[in-house]
Simulated scan of single mutants.
Amino acid sequence: MKRFHVHVHVDDLQASIAFYSKMFGAAPARVEADYAKWMVDDPRLNFAISTRGSKPGVDHLGIQADTEEELATLKARAEAADLALERVGETTCCYARSDKYWVTDPQGIAWEQFHTLGSIPVFSQAPRPVQTPAAACCAPRGKPVGIPVEPASSCC
């Protein structure tokens, strides 16, 4: 079963941890000095926050596959839909080792599709130069990400 993934950049990690812990009714599954992650089961959600962005707001969306087979299915769907797909392969980011690739929606929003292989003790262990723009924690260079935070309005 897959899990929806959202990564949000925040200014105040502790205030955001307190807010989201109340909202989800659970403490984060992982907390670091610059990062926190909840693995919510209802709804199935991998929700991460970090202070590594250039401004607050949604950094990227994604789908976390539980197995390599699910990841292969997601990739096949993206290829069948003729979506621009950037294969990253096995990499490290957000305190995890993952197999991943990126697709970009028509509005330019980056979608990470990945299978987590294990945990690591640091945010990233990039063996090559970092491939991310300053505004995105994990997205490949040149992918427009970062959904601006708009002031609250009276409608959805």
Rank of each mutant, 00 (worst) to 15 (best):
F123H: 10
Q64A: 14
V6M: 06
G146M: 07
A80F: 05
E90W: 04
G118L: 08
L71H: 01
D11S: 12
R77V: 12
R128N: 13
L71Y: 03
A135M: 13
L117D: 04
K75R: 15
V88W: 06
L83H: 08
W102T: 00
L85I: 15
E68H: 12
A27P: 00
K100M: 12
R52C: 02
F114S: 08
V58D: 00
W102M: 00
A18M: 04
V8R: 08
A80D: 09
P127L: 09
A136Q: 10
S124N: 10
T132V: 08
V58I: 15
R77Y: 11
K75I: 04
A152K: 07
V88I: 15
M23F: 15
W102D: 01
C93Y: 08
T73G: 07
S21K: 06
I120S: 03
Y35R: 03
R44P: 15
L74K: 01
F123K: 06
P151F: 06
A15W: 04
T51A: 05
T116R: 15
M39S: 10
H5K: 05
H115E: 02
D41E: 13
H9K: 01
V88G: 03
C138G: 11
R44F: 07
G118H: 08
R77S: 13
A139T: 12
R141I: 14
P151Q: 13
P151D: 14
P133N: 14
T91V: 15
P151K: 14
Y101C: 05
T67N: 02
A65H: 04
Q107W: 11
V88D: 05
R3N: 02
G146P: 04
W102C: 00
R52G: 00
E32M: 12
R30N: 07
E79M: 08
W38Q: 05
S98R: 11
E68W: 07
I17C: 01
I63L: 08
C94A: 14
H5F: 09
W111T: 00
C94K: 00
R128Q: 14
I49P: 00
T91S: 07
T92G: 03
R87T: 14
V31E: 14
Y35W: 13
S119C: 04
M1I: 04
Y20R: 01
A80I: 05
C93H: 11
A152G: 07
S50K: 03
A36P: 03
Y95I: 09
A80S: 13
A135F: 15
V149P: 01
V10Y: 02
G108L: 10
A134R: 12
V145E: 02
A135T: 09
P129C: 07
V130S: 14
H7E: 11
C138K: 04
H7L: 07
R44E: 11
N46Y: 07
W38E: 02
H9I: 03
S21L: 09
Q64H: 06
M23N: 06
V40E: 02
R30S: 09
T67C: 01
A29P: 01
P127D: 06
G142H: 06
N46L: 11
C138D: 13
L74F: 14
C155F: 12
V145A: 15
A81Y: 09
E70L: 04
M23D: 00
D42Y: 10
A152L: 15
S50W: 02
Q131C: 07
S154P: 01
E112H: 05
L74P: 02
A96T: 14
A152V: 15
H5R: 08
P140F: 06
P121L: 07
P56T: 15
